[in-house]
C-alpha cells in the first residue's frame, strides 16, 4: 500500500481528521469513511454529476477529486443544506414541484443548482438548463427539475445559494 497521509476534511462545518491513501477519492471518503451517503456515485467518470458537492462554495464532481486535494477546504454536501427544522429552499422546491422521479440524481442536481444560484440568483430557464449541463437524470425528469430551480430562485432570491445552516464556504 502507498504511504497514507493525514487529511482534515471540513464537511458541513464539522472537522474530520483522517489518515487516507492518496488514491482515495473524495466521494468515497465522504460516503465510506464519514458515512455521508447522500452524495451518490453515478457514472464515476465526471459525467453524470450525481457526486456533486461544494468546495469553498463551488460545485465540483467529487468522483474526480482526491480526498487529499480537499485538505482544509470547506466542503458542503447535501446533508449540510437543510437546517434542523427547515428544508433548504431548493429542497422545498424539488419537493413541491416533484423535481425527481427515482431520486438518484437529486442530491447532485440540488448541489449543482445551489452552485448556479449562488453565482446567478435570478437565472432564466435557458441559464438553468445550461447551468445543469453537468448533471444527468436518467429518468429524464428535467422538466420539473428546471421548474423547481426557477421556483426556488423566485422564492428566495439571492439567499438560495447559501445553506440554511449559514456555514462558511457557500456564499450567496
Amino acid at each position: 500500500m502507498s504511504k497514507t497521509v493525514p487529511v482534515t476534511l471540513n464537511v458541513n462545518g464539522v472537522e474530520h481528521h483522517l489518515e487516507v491513501e492518496p488514491r482515495l477519492l473524495l466521494v468515497h471518503a465522504l460516503r465510506d469513511n464519514l458515512g455521508l451517503t447522500g452524495t451518490h456515485v453515478g457514472c464515476d467518470t465526471s459525467n453524470c454529476g450525481a457526486c456533486t458537492i461544494h468546495m469553498d462554495g463551488r460545485a465540483v464532481k467529487s468522483c474526480t477529486v482526491l480526498a487529499v486535494q480537499a485538505d482544509g477546504v470547506a466542503l458542503t454536501t447535501i446533508e449540510g443544506l437543510a437546517s434542523e427544522n427547515e428544508l433548504h429552499p431548493l429542497q422545498e422546491a424539488f419537493w413541491n414541484d416533484h423535481g425527481l422521479q427515482c431520486g438518484y440524481c437529486t442530491p447532485g442536481m440540488i448541489m449543482a443548482a445551489a452552485g448556479l444560484l449562488a453565482e446567478n440568483p435570478n437565472p432564466t430557464e435557458d441559464e438553468v438548463r445550461h447551468g445543469l449541463e453537468g448533471n444527468l437524470c436518467r429518468c429524464t425528469g428535467y422538466h420539473n427539475i428546471v421548474k423547481a430551480v426557477l421556483d426556488a430562485a423566485k422564492a428566495k432570491g439571492a439567499a438560495v445559494g447559501a445553506p440554511a445552516s449559514g456555514q462558511p464556504g457557500v456564499t450567496a
Binding site: 465526471s46 468546495m55 463551488r58 460545485a59 465540483v60 474526480t64 477529486v65 452552485g115 449541463e133
Partner: peptide, 9 residues
C-alpha cells in the same frame, strides 16, 4: 468546456 463543475476545477 465540459460543464460548470468541471470548469470550477
Amino acid at each position: 468546456i465540459a460543464d460548470p463543475q468541471v470548469r470550477n476545477r
